[in-house]
Nucleic acid binder design. Structure first.
Lengths: 223, 223
DNA sequence: ACCTGAACACCGTTCAAGT
DNA sequence: ACCTGAACACCGTTCAAGT
């Protein structure tokens, strides 16, 4: 799966939660969810598997820490915009791109709710709702709609990444999926047949943004 | 959900995929994701663990089949409405309620995309978009926004169910979460602090519907 | 054709023992 | 205080052997 080249020097470095999380992210990025085991992690860090437990409670905490890391990085990189719609779009895109680069984050985000990563996203999105002129009474609903939409896309993207064969490029993959949809009974699945024609040509990122804009348009009506 | 009374006679019944899936659902409902093992399943069916593999390829297929079952049942129960908005709300609520009753389905839906369960939801939601007067060009985006929102909520609900201690009731749990949010730096997490005041009192189902309505309002603007 | 259940490979986690 | 690595309990999956 990954190249087995051992780290060169500094294996005498002290272990730390940061180093462990960093190594975990590398393993997740190159090998996916399944590749992250305490044995693989220990091997990469040139230590015993038990040593990791001195710094990290268990696998759940490790995955949460890795997820928080990626999201925190993504949110920091987002450039501030003047107009609140633009700011919300930018934050949403930041999350989208982070998950695109690290698909395993998508699966993780909808596993642990109310945690640091989710809070950062919530704050990033929510803080601009006031500026949009959303009345207090509707803030909660608008926030929830945006964040849940983002999480839904995140989860689907992660699942897609897990499903699509490595070698196959996107369009070929989507064409295959569309072909399978066309084999469904057209009487029962008329709409899915319509989707099938649009599927191969579509751009995930653009469609993601279109959804954000749709929700923003809805939010504009309660203003 | 289900009563834990052991099936009485007929354990001499032939094994079948239906019986296996049915037993799997019972285990998932009463014990959650973690409780479903091939050993537990074999014990409940009074057979060897290997026997299950004669009818089901692997655990993924089993989980997918169980998920499809629940969603198919939910979609069948939805009463048809005249007005397309009402129909979409009804379908969305059908999915929401099904996941509320079987939280593990929420986690599963965002794991396997483009499968039977997802297709049923897509068709159910999408088929009414035309009736709403959505132009063809926007159909894809509107469908995607609605379905991704539903999946996002599904995932969060599943995660919440996993997190909330059994004994604790909802309000107490949400109050605890809100209290934790209030400990965050108010300068960095001003919006989250605002959320905290609303969290304990809110109704998941109502909020879910509010999100659907928000997206429908957005969809109305592209009509 | 279908079922049984031991065996295999692998995992997260623990812990006595080391430094 | 921190690390080592064998050991434990448990899992999905396989498969020779049965009916």
């Amino acid at each position: 799966m990954t190249t087995k080249i051992q780290r060169t020097g500094r294996r005498a470095d002290t272990l730390s939660k940061e180093r462990i999380v960093e190594a975990a992210i590398e393993i997740l990025d190159s090998g996916g969810q399944g590749a992250l085991t305490f044995r693989a992690l220990a091997a990469r860090l040139a230590t015993g598997s038990g040593a990791i437990y001195w710094h990290v409670a268990d696998k759940d905490e490790l995955l949460a820490a890795a997820t928080n890391d990626i999201i925190a990085r993504a949110m920091t990189e987002v450039v501030d915009r003047d107009r609140p719609q633009q700011a919300i779009r930018a934050m949403a895109l930041g999350v989208f791109d982070a998950i695109d680069a690290h698909p395993w984050v998508g699966a993780q985000l909808s596993r642990e709710p109310l945690q640091a990563a989710m809070l950062q996203i919530s704050e990033g999105i929510g803080s601009h709702l006031q500026a949009l002129g959303v009345p207090e009474r509707a803030e909660f609903d608008c926030w929830s709609a945006l964040v849940n939409y983002i999480l839904g896309v995140a989860g689907q993207n992660a699942a897609n990444a897990r499903l699509a064969p490595r070698e196959m490029d996107r369009t070929t993959f989507l064409t295959t999926v569309a072909a399978r949809w066309r084999q469904l009974d057209p009487a029962k699945y008329a709409f899915v047949h319509r989707l099938a024609t649009r599927l191969p040509g579509h751009d995930d990122r653009e469609q993601f943004l279109a959804g954000i804009d749709l929700i923003l348009a809805g939010i504009a009506t309660v203003r």
